[in-house]
Design a protein around this nucleic acid. Structure first.
Lengths: 121, 121
DNA sequence: ATATCACCTTAGAGTAACTCTAAGTCAAGT
DNA sequence: ACTTGACTTAGAGTTACTCTAAGGTGATAT
């Protein structure tokens, strides 16, 4: 079992954000100890990882919550969830391409800058 | 010369956001016509493109504004701007890797889902 | 001439997702 | 006993949009 600090560290998000996610009901299987502290199981860490991935794709909190609800609802929702993940795959692909474009632009600009800085000397 | 609608279209952002950017002073060289309407020159379109790139890297509005101010200040700021662009190149690289990771995770999950959906039939 | 359309303008309200602060609880270490 | 460090909550604050309301302008349609 993991504390907020540990789980946040593993997921690469802030403790604030992790508490916010649990409060929003995004992470199933988060228990509380006898002092009311959040306890993350291995399973909930997996859910958290998925949530972070979906948020990274730009999926809104409300949609993620709906997805996690489908997740808990059993195998009847497999097709629905599959479709949702497909959409997120497209988003991730688009983000990849955009990051490549930004990188290309920055490298081109950096090249121009190097020339100008050299020329100035 | 281009209208807000045209410039926003070219830059791939909303008209609202473009007005917001001009109001924040992020885009040099935006004129007004006799009816007070914003007019974007080719040059300002270039600045806009850069602003969108930097925002995409996650650079805050205030930092972008500072960068654009350096831009207008002349060749004395070349080195400073070069360093800033280098940082953004690193960010863009990190985003690229993160998008790849998300994509890998989603594709792995999609594979599992396909198996389970097939198995169910 | 007037109406409708497609644009544009502004100030300011509303929203999403954090991000942080304040005030407090609790257990362990010195 | 006291400090440290982790945790708790409610709620305020921030960023970057995102949208709404109320209105202006100019071109085309009736």
């Amino acid at each position: 079992m993991f504390t907020v600090k540990q789980a946040a560290e593993k997921a690469g998000i802030s403790e604030h954000t992790l508490r916010y996610y649990t409060d929003q009901g995004l992470i199933p299987g988060v228990a509380r100890d006898e002092n009311n502290k959040r306890l993350f199981s291995e399973e909930s860490l997996g859910y958290l990882h998925l949530v972070v991935c979906l948020r990274g794709c730009g999926m809104p909190i409300g949609d993620i919550k709906r997805f996690m609800t489908l997740n808990l609802a059993g195998d009847d929702t497999l097709e629905d969830r599959y479709q949702i993940l497909l959409e997120q795959e497209e988003r991730a692909t688009a983000q990849l391409r955009e990051a490549e474009e930004r990188l290309a632009m920055l490298r081109r600009k950096l090249g121009h800058y190097r020339e100008r800085i050299e020329g100035k000397k």
